[in-house]
Amino acid sequence: MSKKENKKQSLLDWLGNSQLWKSIIRSGVPRTRRQRMYAILGNVFLHLHPARLPRHAVKLGYTWCMGGLSFFLFVVLTITGILLMFYYRPTVEYAFTDIIDLGEQVPLGIMREIHRWGAHAMVLTVWLHMLRVFMTGSYKPPREFNWTVGVILMTLTMFLSFTGYLLPWDQLAIWAVTVGSNMARAHPFIGSEGPGASLLAIGDINLVHAGSDVRFGLLGGRFVGEATLLRFYVLHCIAVPFIAMIFMAVHFWRIRKDGGISGPM
C-alpha cells in the first residue's frame, strides 16, 4: 500500500486493520462483498445465519421476526433472571419479601417487571411464530421434524412460565399452581385420583396414593409448600432452561440443515 492511500483511511479502517482487531474479527471492517460474507462465517454467533439469503427471507412481512424475538426474549429472560437470582431466596420465609425488595430496594427496580412481562411476551411470540410457520406451510417436508422440535420448545416455554409463576409466593402464585398441579392428581395410573390407579395395588395396599403419586413428585409434598417452592425454583432456573437450550440448539441447527428458511420454489 502506498503512503497516499494510507492517509485516506478512516479511524475505523485503521482499527479494523490493526493486529488486535484482526485477531478477534478476522474479516476486518466488512466493506467488500468477500469481507461481509466472511464477517458472518467467521463469527460463532452470526454463523447461525448463512452468509447469503434469498431476498424474501429478510422481509418482515414474510417472517414477522417472531422466531428471532422468541430467542431474543429467552436471552433477556436469562440475563434478568440471573440478576434476580442475586436477590431472591426460594424459601417460604423470604420469597415474598424479597420480591417486594426487588421493586423497592434494588437499584433499577424494574428487573422483575422486565422478567415477568418478557415471559408473557415470549409465550405470545412463540405462538405467533408457530402461526407464521403454519400459514406459510413451512413445516412441510423436509422441515417436518423441526416443527416437532418447535412444538416441544413451545411446551417448554409454557412450562418455564408456569414454574416461574410460583416464585413470588403470593396468592396469585400458589393458587394458580395449585389449580394447575391438581390436574396431575388425575393422571391415569400414576395419579392418586386417576383412572386405573386403584388397580396398582398389592392386596389391600394401594401403591398409588396422595403420598406417592405424580403430583406428590411434582410438588414434593401433598400441597404447594416449601418443598414445592424449591422444586419449582430449580426447575425454573436450571432444569427447564437447560433442556430448552438443547432443543433450541437442535431447532436452529436443523433450520440450516433442512435447507435454510422456507420459500417458494
Binding site: L46, R52, L53, P54, R55
Partner: peptide
Amino acid sequence: DKVLVWPDLVYIE
C-alpha cells in the same frame, strides 16, 4: 438474486 446477511439482515435484527 440473493442478499448478504451482513448488512441486510443483521441490521434489521
